[in-house]
Nucleic acid binder design. Sequence first.
DNA 1: AATGAATGAGATTTCATTCAT
DNA 2: GATGAATGAAATCTCATTCAT
Lengths: 221, 221, 221, 221
Amino acid sequence: MTIEDRRDREKQQMKELILQAAAHIIVTDGYDMLSIRKIASQIEYSPAIIYHYFNNKDEILNQILLQGYENLMSALTESHTLAGSPETRLKYLTRKYIDTALENPDQFLAVQLNKSSQVQNFTSYLFEGAADEKPALKILAKSIEEICAGQNVTDGEIEMTAQIIAASTLGFITKLIIEQDISAQRRKQLIDRFTETVVRMASLKMEAQPINSVMKRKGTI
Amino acid sequence: MTIEDRRDREKQQMKELILQAAAHIIVTDGYDMLSIRKIASQIEYSPAIIYHYFNNKDEILNQILLQGYENLMSALTESHTLAGSPETRLKYLTRKYIDTALENPDQFLAVQLNKSSQVQNFTSYLFEGAADEKPALKILAKSIEEICAGQNVTDGEIEMTAQIIAASTLGFITKLIIEQDISAQRRKQLIDRFTETVVRMASLKMEAQPINSVMKRKGTI
Amino acid sequence: MTIEDRRDREKQQMKELILQAAAHIIVTDGYDMLSIRKIASQIEYSPAIIYHYFNNKDEILNQILLQGYENLMSALTESHTLAGSPETRLKYLTRKYIDTALENPDQFLAVQLNKSSQVQNFTSYLFEGAADEKPALKILAKSIEEICAGQNVTDGEIEMTAQIIAASTLGFITKLIIEQDISAQRRKQLIDRFTETVVRMASLKMEAQPINSVMKRKGTI
Amino acid sequence: MTIEDRRDREKQQMKELILQAAAHIIVTDGYDMLSIRKIASQIEYSPAIIYHYFNNKDEILNQILLQGYENLMSALTESHTLAGSPETRLKYLTRKYIDTALENPDQFLAVQLNKSSQVQNFTSYLFEGAADEKPALKILAKSIEEICAGQNVTDGEIEMTAQIIAASTLGFITKLIIEQDISAQRRKQLIDRFTETVVRMASLKMEAQPINSVMKRKGTI
DNA sequence: AATGAATGAGATTTCATTCAT
DNA sequence: GATGAATGAAATCTCATTCAT
């Protein structure tokens, strides 16, 4: 079996090499500059051999997207087991997610903004009951739940809040990636602020008090 | 002059026809599947005639992007002059923005997720001082400012909050567009919730009270 | 008839306008950059109208070539009636030809290097008997004949010499046009030298005592 | 290594095939009628494969031009080492040059009449000092120098004479190529005459007593 | 396992030309 | 007389993919 094993291992290594090259091209030249020829020339093989390891271009793309998704997921699951107040943990979770996303920005966008149902199977989370199916959303919902513990909040409310926070974070990261001229300092500032805002988004029942200040301002009281 | 007028009108109609076809292709097949050939075959003309109305492919793309942007902007400016409490107005603003975006979903994404510096000139708003330069952000910041009136909030804080809300809204809309299986009802629910969340994001100094509940829960008090 | 006359005149003017524009494009952008569209945009008319005056692109080209040829020819015929020794006249003739060619360099090359039999009908002169048919060659042959007067030279020899001088001059002018970096001064130097060389080429029997005979004829001896 | 060798050889053959086809098109249809499509259909391959052997159209063109130039140059260098009187050698040189040019007439014209600075780098020779830089001109100048040996002739005069002879020869060959109806016999006659004329062009000081000096040198006197 | 050769389809763009108005 | 609209053909070039070796 050892011969077969080695063969398998080598095959896997080659597949990985191809995927890395492809990912690099996406990151460097953009998503739609990816071509089999470019991959081939990067790994210094002939284009034809690539078809020995993948059936077609789409298969390569999907693999990359999948990898990116798994990357993000592991970052999340890893960080949600931490100690501390739920607020702190939510902040950390958010920050971890943002950081991980920014490590492979183009891959992140490629995955998260992908419409193909194949990818959507992984990335969709707006539907009702998503908190039960999607691990990442479940983690997020858990955090929110803890923050709102003791208050009268339904699971549905928590789920929707999780969804909205997730979508907002996606938007925030997207903008950070797309606007390329932002300084590192500014970026840090914005991320700090965003994590705080996320906590506020998660504090569901806070409407009770704030209203006062509003009414005061309006002279109602 | 009527002859010239008619010609102008017809030319304008043809341009519009081309733009619509192009937008439709972007919607259907994705942004980088747009080709002059496809446009031509969709409008059932020869590819060459398209160059009679536009100088090149980029000109068509830019027109689409510009139209989308202007569309959104006019929706915003139109709605920010309304009466009512600042919270109500912010909600309305948000909702209007979402609705307008969803009217031309793919065009919206094509614009807002476009990295080209040409488009970024219009759509970027994360940089420091953006609230002074970008009309849309200015409107948003104004709303936030009113909501926080009487509290000790710096312009910088307001700007960042506006930026975060804007980015979050982008993310929310993006998800609504990308996840195509969401029912109209669910969508409505989510939008309602999102507008409320936005108000909470805008209420900067509300930390005062909520913290109590947190402390209570933790047994600190 | 006056109305028709005016129409004819106007039509002729328009044809001339088109030809000038075309010639200008050839001179400026090169021979194979000529296009109906370019002509049209230069005269600020629509491409279609050009077909009102010419049947097709080739007709325009041929007209230009013809004009260029006639231009050269008139320069020659004009200058061969001058007084002076035949050597001087030959020099002047040569110089005049060169100068005229250099006034419209691209047109000159376009005509003289054109292979189409239509153009060749005008420009060919290497065949036996050309000195009888081709006015320009006849003029040249006349000069040579005078230079060799009194010597035993056949008409055939004279014709061939004329042909060789003509071809050589073509080569010389061609190089002057093609090598664009030559200074005006160098050019002048070369032209001076060339005209002298042409005289030497024309002095057929000089092997015997060339200079003497020339001097004698001039009365120097 | 034989496999690789064979591949290389086949690749070289294919390149040659393409170049020949291209040259043939230039010959037949003219320089600016050359198109990748035409080449492909001539060799009965698909247009795309041509890009497997050449990067682009220009590369093909340049190869053709270069080949033509080198062809001519080797003809010259080969023939200038011959024995005999300088006059004989000059005649032979001239004739060899003409013959070689006429072997690939269109290629010759394509090279020699090409204005692109890339080609001009090879073919230009009218500038001052060209006799030092351009091998072909140097050879020619050498012949002239020998012919004028013992006379008071400056290097500058010799260079200019060489330049004028070269240009004249270009013109002569050009006409031979362009005028397609000339009989082989006539052509021979003209070439004979031209080579003699070239010797006369090269005999700079013959105004004094040319023949004598020549005779002297030849030991006739 | 790996490659070079080959292709068909398709991309953008330019052009000469026609035609109804 | 003049024009805008329209087209078909052709240009260069890139790409994903197949296949014999």
